[in-house]
Simulated assay, not measured.
Amino acid sequence: MALNRQKILDFFKKSESKATVILKDKKKANDTIKEALGKAVTNKGDLEGIWAKMVLLFAVAKDYVNGDYNEIPKRSIIAILGGLIYFLSPIDVVPDFVPVLGFIDDVFILNLVYKQVVKDLEKYKIWKNNQIKIIGLVDESDT
């Protein structure tokens, strides 16, 4: 089955447009992230090759929407949320219910998003690690 790359990218552009609108509503954005995470966990076996990348995408999106992390360009968050919206759509270029191939276009888009924002994600990981260290220091000083 040959994938129509342009059709997938066009569908993704629509998802990014939806992401721009959803980002204006914190509750909708959080609900979208939670829904995508639920779908990812349910289908973890099909997503094994990109699982670590997805976890990072979910984390930065959640921290951004909650206002905890804003050191990332808005275009990067729109791409990430657009990728999650694309992933959520059961009827995309390759419908998710198609055995074996159902997530191939989703994996393509999520990898594409990851590559687009990898530098931003590296900065986020440093920030996140520092947050964990700070929390650890605070917890240690409580004892």
Rank of each mutant, 00 (worst) to 15 (best):
M1E: 10
A2R: 15
Q6K: 15
I8G: 02
L9A: 10
D10G: 11
F11G: 12
K14I: 13
K14H: 13
S15D: 06
S15F: 04
E16I: 11
E16W: 09
E16G: 06
S17H: 08
S17T: 06
S17I: 06
A19V: 00
T20H: 13
T20S: 11
T20C: 10
V21G: 07
V21P: 09
I22F: 06
K24P: 05
K24C: 07
D25H: 13
D25R: 11
K26L: 07
K26D: 06
K28V: 08
D31F: 07
D31I: 03
T32D: 02
K34H: 09
K34I: 07
K34T: 07
L37P: 08
L37I: 14
G38I: 05
G38K: 06
V41Q: 12
N43Y: 06
K44P: 06
G45T: 06
E48D: 13
I50G: 00
I50F: 02
I50H: 02
W51P: 00
K53L: 00
M54V: 02
F58R: 05
F58L: 05
F58Q: 03
A59K: 14
V60F: 03
A61N: 02
K62N: 08
K62G: 04
D63W: 00
G67P: 05
D68W: 07
N70F: 10
E71L: 11
P73Y: 11
P73C: 11
K74R: 14
K74S: 07
I78A: 08
A79T: 06
L81D: 03
G82T: 03
L84G: 03
I85A: 00
P90L: 10
I91L: 15
V93M: 10
V93L: 09
V94C: 10
V94P: 09
P95H: 05
D96W: 09
V100Y: 13
L101W: 15
G102V: 04
F103P: 02
I104L: 07
D105N: 04
D106G: 05
D106Y: 02
V107T: 05
F108D: 02
I109S: 02
L110F: 01
L110H: 01
N111V: 00
V113G: 04
K115P: 12
Q116P: 11
V117D: 03
K119Q: 11
K119P: 09
L121S: 03
E122Q: 14
E122F: 09
E122V: 07
K128C: 03
K128E: 02
N129M: 15
N129E: 15
I132R: 14
I132W: 10
K133R: 15
I134C: 12
I135P: 10
I135A: 15
G136E: 13
G136A: 09
L137Y: 13
L137R: 14
V138H: 10
V138W: 09
V138M: 12
D139I: 10
E140W: 12
S141D: 10
D142Y: 15
T143A: 14
T143V: 14
